[in-house]
Write a protein that binds this DNA or RNA. Sequence first.
DNA 1: TACCCCAGCGCG
DNA 2: AAAGCGCGCTGGGGTA
Length: 575
Amino acid sequence: MYVVLASDPAGVRITQLDDSGAPVAARRTIAREHLPAEVAALERERPRWVWDDTSRWYPQLLAAGVRVERCVDLRLCHVILRNSALTAGSELATAERGPWDAAAVDEKPALLGTLFDLEAFGSEGTERTKGTGAHTGTNSTDSPRDRADPVAEFLAQRAAVAASAGSGRLNLLLAAESAGALVASEMRLAGLPWNVARHDELLAELLGARPKPGERPAILEAVLQRVRDLLEAPELNPDSPNDLLRALRRAGLVIDSTRSWELKKLTHPAIEPLLEYKKLARLMAANGWNWVDTWIENGRFRPDYVPGGVVTGRWATSGGGALQLPRQVRGAVMSDPGWKFVVADAAQLEPRVLAGLAGDAKMAEAGRGDLYEGIVASGAVATRAEAKVAMLGAMYGATSGDGGRLMPRLAKAFPAAIAMVEAAARAGERGEVVTTRLGRSSPPPGESWRDIQGEAYGTDASAADQKRAISQSRGWGRFTRNFIVQGTAAEWALCWMAGLRNRLWELGTGPLTERPHLVFFLHDEVIVHTPKALADQVAAEVRAAAADAGRLIFGSMPVDFPVTTAIVESYADAK
DNA sequence: TACCCCAGCGCG
DNA sequence: AAAGCGCGCTGGGGTA
């Protein structure tokens, strides 16, 4: 059964559909304040909730203590189906842009009326990312998506999937994407436990005690003093790349940027303290006291997770840089008393995904244990380090350096896997679209890309035009090469997390945050916060969910997806 | 003052 | 080891 929710001037309109999409009862409208109780009652029948945007509906339900098992997030699913090569001929994909299509930045509409609509839509989008997602309460009935009918959209999506040759995969992708949206709301509700006192200690050890606003802490100041002395630049502003570059050149160094890996090549007494300064200044700017003041509330870090925020299907976050927490401060992530973290990491996820995608039995075999050791054992390369750099080269499209040099050896040892990424690269170079295992397609290159390619073959094309076109074409090829791997890995991770979410729910009783629950997700890694006594069971469920995800996506293809699990009280103690 | 872009660096 | 993929955030520095 499906239950479609829609905003209505009078409250919330509820439409129940059977599994074929046919209405099973007259639709009705209830008052907004009755929604949580209504959802809780209907949830016992395990429906799939259908709504325009999980972040507009679910946070309030969670706040009222109502958790749902599954949903369809029409906004996220629409994006997938609109772009997927598997549904390219569908009405949904070929229709004019509508309220379910986000306004594209580079498509400025000519007509004022249209412009107004798109701007209204855009402003809604930005509100969503910065806010709590709690839109349903007040003035949301005016947004374009509320003027669109979710029942009609849902039926259009079902039709597009049903007519596709890849309907099984697409259905899995849509379910996983929607489950991800539920997880995102739940993780925001729970928050990542953050020990402010410990964070303070870490900062004090590394930087010195918290300074007055606008000043530098003692250790940072002392390091800077050394830099200024050694460069004989007492007025140096080390945070200004221009200023720093001038000072370095005055000291006789030949350099054209202040990037740390460029600095590392230089020999000068000031380099060591300068690199130290950069490291510490970065910590202070990105995750220092200001960050704690802004992002930690009541011992929890609650970033805004953005499922589908990356073209490849990876998540993004907005606010707090949640996906870039530096190792230096991970010690401040500490479990509650009586609770533990289970930190789990999918080992060598992307190359394993590539083995599955390509159906490369040899590479799957090499991945029976440590994949890189397996590659060494196959004789392709001599060391684990070489295996790793060669694999990265294959997946990212390295052309030079060790990656570019070693990659051809992989092509000999694992021809199927390498042919897969090479084919994706060639498709991208031609401006074609590529598609992940479950059916997410890459965006086509933009208009200016095509212009540049076209111009390079005109009669008055210069050598420079052609060079530019080739370089741009290769660049897009590297993107599509990586897209199929990164995108399919993201699908694996979504399936993993969706399965884990339900397994965790079964381990406990009561509200979500009193059971083992997800508190963090980082592409190929999750953190579960769990009562101490359940930690071992959680670790087992994490591994079982990983095995499920592999079978769901790759079927009988025997690719292993081992996960490392650590049961810890601080994130810093994992791996 | 507000806004935009860039350089640089954190994460996978 | 900084060549090759995907992001977000900060401070500097410019413009309106």
